[in-house]
Design a protein around this nucleic acid. Structure first.
Lengths: 151, 151
DNA sequence: AAATAATAGTATGCATGATAACTAAGTTCA
DNA sequence: TGAACTTAGTTATCATGCATACTATTATTT
């Protein structure tokens, strides 16, 4: 029984992997003019919001603060991937929609992202990956239970 | 074979867990006046640098940029957990050492951190945790190979 | 209807982590 | 030795994500 690894090592391992992955992915996506976080916004809009979605609702779906998402949308609107449209039903709200450029970009990114991912997951079997996803989902669930969901 | 989960979902799962964990841990550590990242600096100094370490060397050990670490040390020095001492061997370099207050804090944090971790890992067996760590280490290794180590 | 609550989004300020460009100091090599 | 290179650390600027506080609406309650 080694004492070298304290029982919170997993957390910092997750932190390291997340940080290094952000660095690598952002570097690879740089020629496209988009970042990993912005890409994730596109993916979620494509998945959940065919014809527009309110910022707060999207933030809730992504488990992200509405302020953080607001900043992301600012930059993505400036880049031309997204647009804010007024919601005719609610004058407080804005409908976020992907532009044609955003859709085109998202399509182009599928292959690139898949290639990056293959390299990051090198040496890890499909079964291991499935297991990994399951454990991470449990951790995410625990964290949301612990109050990470509060706004 | 479901098409719902694209093959890069693992990456964003890691991102979510990392982000949510940061939020939860920082919130729990707030009464102590320290953050998760600053805590990790203390742990690494305690592990590798009994009597001081140069910033660049510590950054290398932690796989973090020297600028990022410099900022962390700024804030931790202001909080009184660390000190920068001139290196008598090299006038460019500074030896980072933990203060008495830093050592005391690190000791107090062991129990707290362990408790937080238990809650985050609820429902995950020791074997699963070991497997998780192994896979994450493989991913980290791949990422460092992919150029995430460059300065 | 008027007062109160809740909700959508923004503004502000901070911590973290990155890159790029810079200064100062040490090292190598012709 | 002196020029060229390398290294340690800082400054400046940016993206992400958080909390807090605010404005403008909408919904609810009395």
């Amino acid at each position: 029984m080694s004492r070298k690894e304290p029982d919170f090592a997993t957390g910092f391992l997750v932190h390291d992997v997340s940080r290094l992955r952000k660095k690598v992915v952002d570097h690879e996506l740089k020629p496209l003019g988009i970042t990993r976080s912005q890409w994730w916004v596109l993916v979620n809009i494509a998945r959940y919001a065919e014809d527009g979605i309110a910022q707060t609702e999207l933030a809730r779906l992504m488990s992200v603060g509405k302020v953080s998402l607001g900043g992301l949308i600012d930059r993505m609107e400036a880049s031309g991937w997204l647009e804010r449209l007024p919601d005719p039903e609610d004058r407080r709200a804005k409908k976020v929609v992907m532009t044609k450029a955003g859709e085109k970009l998202l399509g182009e990114m599928q292959g690139i992202a898949s290639g990056i991912n293959k390299r990051i997951m090198k040496g890890i079997t499909k079964e291991q990956n499935k297991l990994l996803d399951g454990i991470l989902k449990t951790m995410k669930h625990n964290l949301l239970q612990m109050g990470a969901a509060e706004e």
